[in-house]
Design a protein around this nucleic acid. Structure first.
Length: 828
RNA sequence: GCCGGGAUGGCGGAAUUGGUAGACGCACGGGAUUCAAAAUCCCGCGUUGGUGACAACGUGGGGGUUCGAUUCCCCCUCCCGGCACCA
């Protein structure tokens, strides 16, 4: 054993040992309970960043912990390899996206291995390979046949200068990021997945997910946004048609003073036919990005169409306005405006001097807008009704006139999966003049994406490559063209969790192993994925179930949403260019230090503000652990001293040792509690505390000279080090593996058992109480642990720190005793 | 704008969920060791007043409930994440 902590050597040797002994290769059959631990797979963007280190270390800690608790653990790793950054890099570096991606995968894989992750690398795959995407093309064709995929037009960001579709991220302040041109909203035909057909199940099944953070479930519920409301039809004056709107507040119908439609609404288009001013306004509304955040924060603007509708219940003529705050994608793209009881309508009505009519009241305060529920007035026959009764009565009245009815509405929209980009999975559709849209037959899959391409920044190479798009129709054999759009990259990440179970199957997307391993027992990833990725993966799980590939309803049993790694207050990300390279950390201090620091700096679910200081502290602890083991190797070595064989009980040891042993057990209990609730930062604290405790055991004085002291000391060290190393093993696996071996505890620490606290060692015969007077800390009281509550009350009232408040006629009103904690004397 | 979070010493965080606020670590100050430095070890460290025992204040701001509030309730400010084509 070396005196200095040789982290480089230890880490290299342990990693080689684990690889050689195939310790992390998961068995598809086992008597042990299974534990499938999955961290969200990385996008191969270049090098590992701190967010990766944090994510994969958390997953590794939980994997190793469960392995030591006796589970059959599977922790795989893969690559979310399609995406926009590869195209940008290709344009910038004149390399093909595939080559860039595979280079990055190689680099990042080396780095991940240096972290010492307990990963089963045999299950690795990259989503950009035909072996992987073949199966999602197959699933696409199955879903297409089941009418779960359909085509419709949808709005995209159009860059008129580059002549290309831009991602929301590529639109900055309404301008294209490369061209600087003003972006226009443009409608193009795209494929959609009918996620709304699963809206109710996606909503209801959230209740089954006990292992998910409440916060994430709330976000998903709100995203799905099921609302019970009412559709109302307003006859258009002078036309033989109705304007349909949806409202969640039918109780306010009598307060409607105008209606507003989105710029894209058919009625707006019609009204603009002979109205150039309105046409110009509609064109203006179509400028800027399609992102909802941009639409919703834009200044509220509108224009009168000159059209009117008739209020279905009171017969009033209401003007029809075009407003930029009405979303074409929600409800019917039109709203009834009730300025008195809606913030946005109120602001709009004030600006354009439209009438405001209050119809709901709940307090004497009549400030408008009043958006809460209340009782109706100014509403003819509905006066005096509350929200529930009014909603019922008004929807019935509308139904009776055939001008509306109750309707359940979702905020969730069908998922547009077409992308006009190159670096993605080709959509397996062939367009035939005679047969129309035809899915590519299974025996002709995969539709392989050509990888030998040049990116020039204008459009997708496969859209200009006849050797790709020219084909024949599988149905009639005539010349036909392939679809050149690719799939949203969320498509790949929606089912990879399942493919890890059947990664090597060339004949099926999934096999029976999926039903052994799934659901994922622990899923770990960034909170930024709380809605989209997690919702799509849940949706895909249900789709795969319904085509017979799976039995489970939900993909992820437990979810840990890791907080962001921030630097200078912003999310650390490639796109922001504020990443810190973990490689320098690993090179200088080793993987164990990097892992320890990341785990210690913040609890897993909280955001972590990166600071360079602190790493030294983590490294210092490991050095101390090493030198303590080295200095005490004779005592800590399991076969020396023979203490256990002599039947020595540490409870009977000299006070300094039995106290230390008690402290170790209390700390172990805390660590186990923290492992159970996955609060890893305080497990690190606990391990530091244990080492502090052991270092403080006296090594001099009269006691030290007696031979029995040394026997007890050795026994205490052996038991304590064995506990400490096992507590640390999931977090700092290399040093734990090495010390476990050199101190003679066994060949592989991962194969040992998990330590439990010795209850007998934690018993105390006195209790230290805190004395409070009127809730303020005033003193202490030590009593023997069998003292009754009555006796404690009698003792406390004669304590000087209490009696000094018994002046000027004040007396003890009440005594509150919190067992084993505190006594509060209420004096008044 | 809408939805979901967060705010505790100079800094990261802890407080087993209504019961001693500041565990553990970083930074800093003092000391030991050293020719010197690094490394290491020991001591101190919320703020204010006091030599001191001690006292007052203190968990983003304002109110409330309670014997007792970082924790529960109401209002507000700022920061972070998401908003459907970044992943």
């Amino acid at each position: 054993m070396q005196q200095q902590y040789p982290f480089k050597e230890i880490e290299k040797n342990s990693q080689e040992y684990w690889e050689k002994s195939r310790l992390f290769i998961a068995e598809d059959k086992s008597d042990k309970p299974k534990y499938y631990c999955l961290s969200m797979f990385p996008y191969p963007s270049g090098k590992l960043h701190m967010g990766h280190v944090r994510n994969y270390t958390i997953g590794d800690v939980l994997s190793r912990f469960h392995r030591m608790r006796g589970y059959n653990v599977m922790q795989p790793m893969g690559w979310d390899a399609f995406g926009l950054p590869a195209e940008n890099a290709a344009i910038a570096n004149k390399t093909a996206p595939a080559a860039w991606t595979f280079d990055n995968i190689a680099t990042m894989k080396t780095q991940l291995k240096q972290l010492g992750l307990a990963v089963d690398w045999e299950r690795e795959f990259a989503t950009c390979t035909p072996e992987y995407y073949k199966w999602e093309q197959w699933l696409f064709t199955e879903l297409y046949k089941k009418d779960l995929i359909y085509k419709k037009t949808a709005t995209v960001n159009w860059d008129p200068v580059d002549g290309t579709v831009l991602a929301n991220e590529q639109v900055i302040d309404g301008k294209g990021w490369r061209s600087g041109a003003e972006i226009e909203k443009r409608d193009i035909p795209q494929y959609f997945m009918r996620i709304t057909a699963y809206a109710d199940e996606l909503l209801d099944d959230l209740d089954k997910l006990d292992g998910w953070p409440e916060q994430v479930k709330t976000m998903q519920r709100n995203w799905i946004g099921k609302s019970d409301g009412c559709e109302v039809e307003f006859p258009v004056v002078g036309e033989n048609s109705n304007l349909k709107v949806y409202t969640t507040r039918p109780d306010t119908l009598m307060g409607a003073t105008y209606v507003a439609v989105a710029a894209e609404h058919a009625l707006a288009t019609k009204a603009a036919e002979n109205n150039p001013t309105l046409q110009a306004f509609i064109k203006e509304c179509k400028l800027g990005s399609v992102a909802e955040a941009d639409v919703a924060t834009a200044e509220k603007k509108g224009m009168d169409t000159g059209l009117f509708v008739t209020h279905p219940l009171n017969g009033e003529k209401l003007p029809v306005w075009v407003a930029n705050y009405v979303l074409i994608s929600y409800g019917d793209g039109a709203v009834m405006a009730v300025p008195a009881h809606d913030e946005r309508d109120f602001e709009f009505a004030e600006k354009y001097e439209l009438p405001i009519k209050a119809v709901i009241k709940n307090t004497d305060d009549d400030t408008l807008p009043m958006t809460e529920h209340g009782v109706l007035f100014n509403s003819a026959q509905f006066d005096g009704l509350d929200f529930e009764a009014a909603a019922e009565a008004i929807s019935s009245a509308l139904s009776a006139k055939n001008q509306g009815k109750k309707r359940t509405q979702y905020r969730l929209r069908d998922w547009g999966v077409s992308r006009q980009r190159y670096w993605g999975c080709p959509i397996p559709i062939i367009h035939c003049d005679k047969c129309g849209e035809v899915t590519v037959p299974t025996d002709q899959l995969p539709v392989v994406l050509p990888t030998d391409v040049t990116m020039d920044g204008v459009g997708s190479p496969i859209k200009k490559d006849p050797s790709f798009y020219e084909t024949t129709c599988p149905t009639c054999g005539n010349a036909a063209t392939r679809e050149t759009d690719t799939l949203d990259t969320f498509f790949e990440s929606s089912w990879y969790f399942a493919r890890h179970t059947s990664h090597d199957n060339d004949n099926a997307m999934l096999d029976e192993r999926a039903n052994y391993w799934l659901p994922v027992d622990q899923y770990i990833g960034g909170i930024e994925h709380a809605i989209l990725h997690l919702l799509y993966a849940r949706f895909f799980n249900k789709l795969m179930r319904d085509v017979g590939l799976l039995k489970n309803d939900e993909p992820f049993k437990n979810l840990l949403t890791q907080g962001m790694v921030l630097k200078d207050g912003a999310k650390m990300s490639k796109s922001k260019g504020n990443t810190v390279d973990p490689q320098t950390l690993i090179d200088r201090y080793g993987a164990d230090t990097a892992r320890l620091f990341m785990m210690f700096a913040a609890p897993p679910e909280q955001s972590l503000e990166w600071a360079d200081s602190g790493i030294q502290g983590a490294h210092r602890f490991l050095k101390r652990l090493w030198s303590f083991s080295y200095d005490n190797r004779e005592y800590a070595y399991i076969e020396n001293q023979g203490a256990q064989q002599q039947g020595v009980s540490l409870i009977d040891a000299p006070t300094s040792i039995s106290n230390a042993w008690r402290e170790i057990n209390l700390t172990l209990e805390q660590a186990n509690h923290d492992y159970a609730r996955q609060q890893i930062n305080t497990i690190v604290s606990a391990s530091m505390k244990m080492l502090n405790t052991l270092e403080k055991i006296p090594m001099s004085g009269d006691d030290w000279k007696s031979s029995s002291y040394l026997t007890y000391y050795a026994e205490c060290l052996q038991q304590s080090m064995s506990i400490l190393l096992r507590i640390l093993a999931p977090i700092t696996p290399h040093i734990s593996h090495e010390l476990w071996k050199v101190l003679g505890y066994g060949e592989e620490i991962l194969n040992s058992s998990w330590p439990e606290a010795d209850k007998a060692a934690m018993v105390q015969n006195t209790i230290d109480y805190v004395i409070q007077v009127n809730g303020k800390l005033r003193g202490n009281l030590t009593v023997s642990s069998d003292t009754t509550k009555d006796a404690i009350e009698k003792m406390v009232v004669v304590e000087p720190c209490v009696t000094k408040f018994l002046v000027d006629g004040a007396s003890v009103r009440k005594i509150i005793v919190v067992p084993k904690k505190l006594i509060n004397v209420v004096i008044g």
